[in-house]
Simulated scan of single mutants.
Amino acid sequence: MTTTDTVQVHPGNAAQLRAWDGDEGAYWAAHADHFERALAAYHPRLFEAAAITADDRVLDVGCGTGRTTRDAARTAWAGSALGVDLSSSMLDVARERAAAEGLGNISFQQVDAQIHAFAPAAFDVAVSATGAMFFGDRVAALANIGHALRPGGRVALLTWQPPTDNEWFRSFTTTLAAGRELPTPPPDAPGPFTLADPDVIRAVLADAGYGRISVEGMSAPMWFGHATEDAHRLVAGLLGWMLDGLDQPTRDRALDDLRADIAAHATPAGVLYESAAWIACATRP
């Protein structure tokens, strides 16, 4: 694993580097199959919006373990795909999976896309699946990504709609809160719902210098595991920090409530929760 002091990041992204190049990123890397499958229902529409062609040069921002990058490399078979992320653990998995699939037009870098000096006009398309919300300065990050796009190049973003429209988030946080009022992060703090308002998405993209902006809503089931215990282990491991400060009986009750909620969402196709996201597209002038 690359140590966090070797990666140059904007100060506003330092906490994200500590998390994603630390325990959180390692957990996602260890459960890559689950996390890659969780968003699978959104990939066809995201790629339709990105309109990647055979000879495009594609930049995947916040690529994680590389599912989106690999799909881009297969689509741009005469072009190339570069995935960038802050997590060395996830990038290790991404490289292994790309090599196993024999993708020779793909590469990965551990960089902060908000400040990294991409070559100007080096890409035709940039995509980001649930990554753009985590930048300390989303306008600066998307402007930097836009600088890396050729004139007329396009960006396609997948971002979550508000928590009220995402059953998975409501269910998990309610059960693990165990009756407590959880603190609300500042509205501009990096997090999964900072681009949940379509007006904010449009404003951020416009301020970053993009034109021809469109935002489309989409709902899809989100997959969390093959069966109840499989999904329970995944979610409890991911969100176990929410139980900090609780006594053991309360912790046990919260985990039992989580298990019961997950069991109620078990189907023959696995554990499914409703989710909703925005797919935003824009063009560099």
Rank of each mutant, 00 (worst) to 15 (best):
P268Q: 11
L86C: 05
R170W: 03
H34Y: 08
V7K: 10
F135Y: 15
A73I: 11
A51E: 15
P186C: 08
T3Q: 12
L103N: 07
F123H: 11
E24K: 06
W77H: 15
A73Q: 06
L246V: 11
T159Y: 01
D257T: 09
A40Y: 02
L158F: 04
A264V: 04
F108C: 12
A277L: 05
A73L: 09
R70G: 02
Q110I: 10
G191S: 15
P268H: 12
G179Y: 11
I106G: 00
V215D: 14
R251Q: 14
T267G: 04
L142P: 01
R70V: 04
A280N: 02
V271Q: 02
D230W: 00
T65I: 08
P11E: 13
G136H: 06
D247L: 03
T130K: 02
C281Q: 10
T3M: 09
G12E: 00
A196P: 03
L86A: 05
P198C: 06
A277H: 03
G191Q: 14
T175S: 13
A264P: 01
T69G: 03
L195N: 02
G217L: 09
F193G: 10
A100V: 11
P221T: 00
P187G: 07
N105R: 08
F224K: 00
A50D: 01
P185D: 11
A140R: 10
V7E: 09
P186V: 10
L258V: 05
E181T: 15
P268R: 09
F169G: 02
A54W: 07
A266D: 13
D56W: 08
A117G: 08
D256K: 09
A148R: 00
F169R: 12
P11M: 12
G245R: 05
D56K: 10
L182Q: 10
R259P: 02
T68K: 00
Q109L: 15
A15N: 03
P268G: 13
H232S: 00
G209I: 03
P151R: 04
F118L: 11
D247S: 04
E216S: 15
T175W: 01
A260R: 15
D85T: 10
I213M: 12
Q110F: 13
A19Y: 02
P249S: 12
F118Q: 06
A178P: 06
A143R: 15
A119N: 13
G79I: 08
Q109P: 09
F35S: 04
G79H: 08
Y273V: 03
L176G: 02
D197A: 06
A196S: 15
A269W: 05
E216M: 14
V155M: 11
A76Y: 06
E48Y: 03
D92L: 05
G25P: 01
R180W: 12
H147R: 15
T175H: 05
Q248P: 07
R251T: 14
P44W: 06
Y210A: 07
P163C: 09
A231Q: 00
S80E: 06
A122Y: 04
L142G: 01
D112Q: 13
R138N: 04
D71F: 08
Q110L: 13
T164D: 15
R251H: 07
L158N: 00
N144A: 03
F169W: 14
F135C: 11
Y42L: 08
T174K: 09
Q161Y: 10
P249R: 13
A122L: 05
D55L: 08
R212I: 05
A100S: 14
D199E: 14
L255D: 07
N144I: 02
